[in-house]
Amino acid sequence: MSDLPQIANNLRQLVVKMITQAGSGHPGGSLGLADIFATLYFSDLFNLDPNKPNDPNRDRIIVSNGHVCPVWYAALAAKGYFPEPELETLRQFNSRLQGHPHKDFSHPENNLPGVENTAGPLGQGMSFAAGLALGFKTQKLPIKTICFTGDGELNEGQSWEALMFVSKYKLSNLTYIIDRNDIQIDGFTHDVMPLNSLKEKLNAFDFLTIEIDGHNFQSIQSALTHNSTKPKAIIAQTIPGKGVSFMENKFEWHGKAPTPEQLKVALKELA
């Protein structure tokens, strides 16, 4: 548990390396979420076994903001779901590490182990996660569903359709983690489409809403383990580009690859 910061730092190194190698990708959100991904996969809070990626009873980590998949892939590789060198194939032709995550439910043998959903077009994973949680509840299966989403993603009408639905069916087996990094492609979220009092909005949708510092491991863990009879929303205040000084809080780094020179600087800072 005490090595979570170190694990997260390792994920960050893998993220900047693979995005540089790929020549494109989304470092901002990927670096910002590294601490939460490290906690999810390395703190034994959830039923996740890299040796049984298709275990029907596993908890489900869903990533709706699919563009942050570099940190998902990094966490899965670091956890042992697949060999780490495969990370170098990110975004390449014939790679299992697609530019945005893909899962083919009819041909599981072709999938990257650990990836649980197809994502990228925003809002869709939120509905998908809601359907999963409802499916588990209907079948009385004690499986937890955790779904990442972004603050820019909440511009999508579908996001709010999903939130209403989760509230109606009281899906307390579902937790949304909202990456509140205040950036999206065109700029700061407070400029492009302000969400203002997000916590109040989610409370009004009858969620148990917890606001945390998304880089404080203790806060992350206590928010994830907080018991709730309601569906849960964790608003994680994060710094986009966290750990790489020239990327931090710069919306320009939402979806841009570092140059090899910038990678050297980044890796030095993350060492």
């Binding site: 029907p56 439910f105 649980e116 959903n117 809002g123 869709q124 994973g125 939120m126 509905s127 998908f128 996660a129 809601a130 359907g131 999963l132 949680a133 409802l134 499916g135 588990f136 209907t138 079948q139 299966l141 009408g157 579908q158 359709e161 999903a162 209403m164 639905f165 109606k168």
Partner: peptide
């Protein structure tokens, strides 16, 4: 019943299928 929300209906259906239904 998802209410008047066809986009969510499709996504929820996908999730239900992924849960084995």
């Amino acid at each position: 019943d998802v209410g008047v929300a066809e986009q969510n209906m499709m996504g929820v259906s996908g999730g239900l299928a992924a849960a084995g239904l």
